[in-house]
Structures are given as C-alpha cells and as structure tokens.
Design a protein around this nucleic acid. Sequence first.
DNA 1: CACCTAAATTGCACCAGATGCAATTTCTAT
DNA 2: ATAGAAATTGCATCTGGTGCAATTTAGGTG
Lengths: 271, 271
Amino acid sequence: MGGDMVRRAQALNYSLDSIDRMSATLLALETQPDQSLEQVARRTGLNESTALRYLLSLSKHGYVERDEETGSFRLGLELFRLGTQAMEHRNILSVAGPVMAALQDRFGESVNLAANQQDRVVLIKVLGRLDSMRKEGRAGEIDPWHATSLGKAILAALPEDKVHSILSGVTFDRYTPNTKTDMAELAKDLTAIRRNGYSVDDEEVVEGLRCIGVAVRGHNDRVDYALSLSGPKSRMPYSRIQEIGGVLIDSAGELSAKLGASGQTRTRLAV
Amino acid sequence: MGGDMVRRAQALNYSLDSIDRMSATLLALETQPDQSLEQVARRTGLNESTALRYLLSLSKHGYVERDEETGSFRLGLELFRLGTQAMEHRNILSVAGPVMAALQDRFGESVNLAANQQDRVVLIKVLGRLDSMRKEGRAGEIDPWHATSLGKAILAALPEDKVHSILSGVTFDRYTPNTKTDMAELAKDLTAIRRNGYSVDDEEVVEGLRCIGVAVRGHNDRVDYALSLSGPKSRMPYSRIQEIGGVLIDSAGELSAKLGASGQTRTRLAV
DNA sequence: CACCTAAATTGCACCAGATGCAATTTCTAT
DNA sequence: ATAGAAATTGCATCTGGTGCAATTTAGGTG
C-alpha cells in the first residue's frame, strides 16, 4: 500500500522546544482573543515570564498583537497575511473558484471546499446561499472526520492504514441521532462511498442538513481536498442524491486534473 | 499628541532569537512555494542544518509543509487557519461585509478594506466587479502608503509623529507619472485629505485607475482600517468624487461606530 | 487620596538545549 | 553504475533561554 514513498530520512527526531512553545502560545490565543499574560501562561503551561517573552517576540513580528490599553494579547494579522500566501501558493482557490461557482449556480445550494491537512479536515472556502443564514461552515474551521461528507469522502479515498492512523485519533462525538459513532458503522459507510464515488452526510452533523461530498486529488494524486454540496433535506431528497453525486464527481475530477493529478485514480466518472 | 498612552514598561528589550529565526524562515517561504532546504538556508542566512531543524519543527505543527516527493518546503495551512481566527477575533469582516456589499451595489465598483498593521497597509477584503478582471487587489497583499487611497486615508488620520515614523521607512517608489514621490507632495495631499475627509488615488498606482478612501476607527478610536472604492477613471470622473467621498465617509463612520469607536473623532459627517 | 492586592515586568545565575562543523547518507543526473 | 550535489545526522561546545525572586505598575477600596 503506497509502496515506495520516498523515505526521506526519519527527520522526526528533531523538534525545537522553542517552536513547540511558540505554537502553544499561538494555540492558546486561538480560542479567544484578548487574553492576559496570566491566562496565556496558564494555558500554555509556560512560566509567566517565559510566556511574556514569547508573546512579545511574536508581537514584534505581528503574529501576536497587544492591546496597549489593557495589555491583553490576541492573534496578529501577520498570520492572516501568511495564511493567504499559503493558500495562494497551492493555487487551489483560483482553480476551485469557478468550479464551485458553477455548482452553486446549478444547484443553488452551499458549496464547500476543505483541505486534508495533517490529519485534520480544514474548511477553506464556503460559497453560501445568500438567504438561509442557516448552519453554514466558515473557512478556517476544523470539521469532524466521521460525520461530515467532506471528511468521509477523504477517508474513503485514503489507503486503509492511513484511515486507521487518522481514526485512532478520532473521538466519534455524536452531534445528532444520525451521527455514526463507532468504527464499524463508519467502515460500512466508507465501503459504500468507495463504491458510489461520493459520500453522504445525512443529518449527521446538523439536523435537517444533508451534504454530498467527493474527494479531490492534488499534485501526485494525493488526496488533498474534498468538495461538497450542502442543503436542507427538503431540497436534497434521496431521489436526487445520485444525480448530485455524479455531478460532484465530475467537478472533482475536473479540479483534480487542473491541480495536476494524473487522472489515473479518477475512476468511476459518470460515463 | 496622543498624550497619556499607557506606558506599559518598555517591553522591547526582549526578543527571542528563535522567534526571529522562525519568522525569517516563514518569510523566506513567503515569496515562492516549493523551495529547497538550500534556498531557505540562503534566504534566511541560517546554517543549513539549523534551517532544516526550524523547517521540520514548523512542519510538525503545520506552519510549514513539505512535499514528500521532492523534499521542498512551503507555507502550511495552519497559518491559514490561525489567520482566519485572527481575522474573526477582531470581527471586522462580519461588520464590514454588509457595509461593503452596500457600497458595491450602489456604485458597481470594487470595494476594498485594508488594515493598518504594524506600519503596513494590509488588504484584508476585496469585493471585486465580476467583469473587469482588471488590476484588482488581493486579500493579504501589502499596499504602498504613499500611493494608495487606503494608505493615505490612514496616514491623514494619524498624528503627525506617527506619520513621520511610518514615512521614514517608505521608499516612495514611482508606479505611474502621477505617483507622489516625495514627502512634500504627500504632505500637501494629506492636508487636503484631512480637509475633505477622504483620500484620492488618481492613477497613482495603476494608470487609468482611480480610488477614493476613508479611514475607519476601531476600538478606542484607533485608526485600524481603511475603506476604499476603486474603478476606472471613466466611471469615476472628478465630478463624482465628492459625492462618492461623502458616501464613503458615512460608511466608514457607521463601521467605526459598530467597531466600538467613540464617535468623537468622527467629524465631518455629511450633515 | 493613600493604601493595598494582584498582575506584569525585569535582573540574574545557571544549565538545558540549540548551534555549526564535519561526516555520512541519500538523491539526481549522467 | 558512478560522480557530484543536496540533505541529514552526530557531537562537543557554548550561547541564549529559563525560572526564581525582586521590583514595578495597574487597579481597586476604604
């Protein structure tokens, strides 16, 4: 499985403590803005003076900002700037934009794009409906693997061993009565997804919300992204799921091709 | 000027070298993706083994990603995720979104929002026209202080000493024949901007493109953002500038109020 | 208005951990 | 296959980060 992936040294022994601490500091600020030094120190487990030194050093570069008035800290805009660059460097948005817009036009539902990043599903773009300010995702959020169409579509496209390594870190939280909360249920679902080519989240995250998702392959056929369409079950009846799934498969195929996937893995295109 | 800003220790002596190096590493990857270890080491000035250790440590947390195939490095999506959070924490987009959309509807031109971040003008949101794929800005880019309506609007709203400290780091590059390339010219412009309440970029960045901008105040009346409308000079004739400027002043005032500015500094509202 | 408490900041001596060199391994291209 | 280039690692050194404790500052109270 996977075979001869380049074994580029182990390159895992390393880990600069300062980078770990830096990351802990940013993560401490992630949950809520305007935290005091004391709060950050507590959350990171760092000594207060150490935390201060990290915070001030990070501030110097704009990764953190400080309110001069209150002395509290929050994430800085330099992260936004670099994050934007990170996004543009993989030129996914420019490629996916038109494809997503076409899907939105065609179905009139929300279209979502997520990335498979370090064992997490990160939502990177959402084209929402103008009306229903319903439960819509926001770019930057992390989605659960086991309950979303995006997560399941990615899982189904990954080799077994990778699936296991990812799921070993999953807590199978229940969001609705429909959420699949154990490995066995999910495994059965993944088999079906591999057969169909698309995944379905049938009110498994939010009641009344149904989503259909498909994996997207990037450079070197890696399963880097997933595309989904989501809407209220009333407008996404079971009778239409196969049709929508087929369209999504085509869209994802188009996207994969433009991202440099070889296409050899894009089987089951609706012929 | 500015008066009794809380003098929160000096807090400037500090600077962890590791954070400086970390930042240098990310910045090295900013210009282009998929760089080799050697390239990063050269750009950062770090020893190759040190650069590798930073890159791998950063990879561990997702700030950097490595192409397993080629071994090259690029910025990671964790930056995007945190950057999104940074943006949301200052809830500017949710507040500015409707205001910007209204401006776009009314004038049919591109609407831009920038932040005043650590002596830089960072574009954070662009509502473009669907047609003209002209020279439009992209979120995340850094704009020149002396030539853009956004930059000048912010400058004009800042106290003199701050203006000087910012401009001391500006190179006054020339982009078009209209670009104001020296301090004297710009100073005169700033005076006019303070009088009018809005700034004008009259083909000073891109030929044929005219922009009108206004500063936006955030919490504690700090000059944190600027709003602008930009379009081809044919559709933004001199005869309409005052009208547009007036509307922008109102929009910016509304925005400032929602962001928690006291409003005492929002003078010159079109009455 | 002076005092008091909690939080933030800084000085300092020690020591952990980062650094760069040089050796080794892996990759790439003949 | 083999050379040359790039990447990776081991290791001894020593720099620079750390935490403690002292000090200063901010904010609230009688």
